[in-house]
């Protein structure tokens, strides 16, 4: 939003080649992230929602340079992140970390939890000697609500929720300022999910962190995020404060997502808001990528891709319908 954005991305694009043909010969290219601008302020929680294949995970990984974009610029606290390389980039990595959906896949099954959490401390030379490292690991375990004595155990001895706590301890070990939380609670049952979300909110306050919170549960995003970005097929289609997005969504896709989210009110829902499936990455539709499923599509929607336009304070929408009705 402001010049003081901690993370500032402009025009990010990233193409991949689809697998295709015989034995994985290269198929046609597609853009997983197709021209995304994004600002994340200091101590801000920005929600990123969208369905599988929308590019939300790719975007999250670009922001912490796990993936390099093909085009665009990326600044972290004023530093040009894409210009950084080697040692300098590695040094900066302690400032931005990621929490994955599946902590089981991101933890080495043969490494004790204490070592997994302590490893980044060693790499970034944040602990002098074994003693200091052990103390810091104990402190981190306590901070995420685990018993420090669990440091000598292996990942398989932990429940899903506990493993996610370990993943969080590892992510905050080096004192980052920005975390990408990529579906951190999607694999967990509701009561455990609530515990982990509360932990993330607590840590955000205590450590003054910024999050990009990637999720598909819109109700959850609403609870904890100040601002929400909706992606569809590699593009941002709507961005607004959480309250505006939920109370007055403008993009037909955002409306459909909200309508499809199950409520806890018993009763039969209306017919599904959206027919069809997200577009094929190998045969992208012309114009607005949402037009083949859009209940309100106009003739021009299949010809021209709508630009993301500001329509109110902090509210941006990429839709021909909205361009029309606004002054």
């Amino acid at each position: 939003m402001s010049a003081a954005a901690l993370v500032r991305a402009r025009g990010l694009r990233k193409g991949f080649r689809a697998r295709g043909g015989w034995l994985g010969s290269k198929g046609p290219a597609f853009h997983a992230v197709d021209g995304v601008d994004l600002d994340i302020g200091a101590s801000e929680i920005v929600g990123l929602v969208g369905e599988s294949g929308s590019g939300k995970s790719t975007l999250g990984r670009i922001l912490i340079r796990l993936i390099d974009p093909d085009e665009g610029t990326l600044h972290f606290d004023g530093t040009d992140l894409l210009a950084m390389q080697g040692q300098a980039l590695r040094r900066l990595r302690r400032e931005f970390q990621i929490v994955f959906q599946d902590p089981y896949g991101s933890l080495n099954p043969r490494m004790k939890i204490g070592d997994a959490i302590g490893e980044p401390l060693t790499i970034h030379k944040l602990a002098n000697g074994r003693q200091q490292r052990t103390e810091r690991v104990a402190e981190l375990l306590t901070q995420v609500g685990l018993d420090p004595r669990m440091a000598t155990r292996y990942p398989h001895e932990f429940s899903g929720g506990q493993r996610q706590r370990v993943g969080i301890a590892r992510a905050i070990a080096c004192g980052p300022r920005f975390l990408v939380a990529d579906e951190p609670v999607s694999a967990l049952d509701a009561p455990v999910q609530a515990q982990i979300v509360n932990l993330l909110v607590d840590l955000q306050e205590q450590l003054d962190l910024s999050y990009l919170f990637i999720a598909h549960d819109l109700n959850l995003v609403r609870r904890i995020c100040g601002r929400v970005v909706v992606m569809y097929f590699g593009r941002v289609v709507e961005e607004a404060s959480a309250s505006t997005l939920y109370d007055a969504p403008r993009h037909p896709y955002t409306k459909a997502l909200l309508a499809a989210t199950p409520s806890v009110r018993p009763g039969r829902p209306q017919a599904p808001a959206l027919a069809g499936e997200p577009p094929s990455q190998t045969a992208p539709p012309s114009g607005c990528p949402f037009h083949p499923r859009c209940p309100e599509a106009l003739a021009e929607c299949s010809r021209e891709t709508p630009a993301l336009l500001q329509i109110g304070q902090g509210h941006k929408v990429a839709c021909h319908l909205v361009g029309r009705s606004s002054p």
């Binding site: 509701a190 199950p262 409520s263 806890v264």
Partner: peptide, 25 residues
């Protein structure tokens, strides 16, 4: 009751902290 309270869709959207059940299964 604990299970129902823990769903993000229930309760107030303004409340950042979700009610949880203590402990584990």
């Amino acid at each position: 009751r604990g299970l129902l309270r823990a769903i993000p869709a229930s309760g107030s959207a303004k409340e950042r902290w979700l009610p949880t059940l203590p402990g584990v299964v």
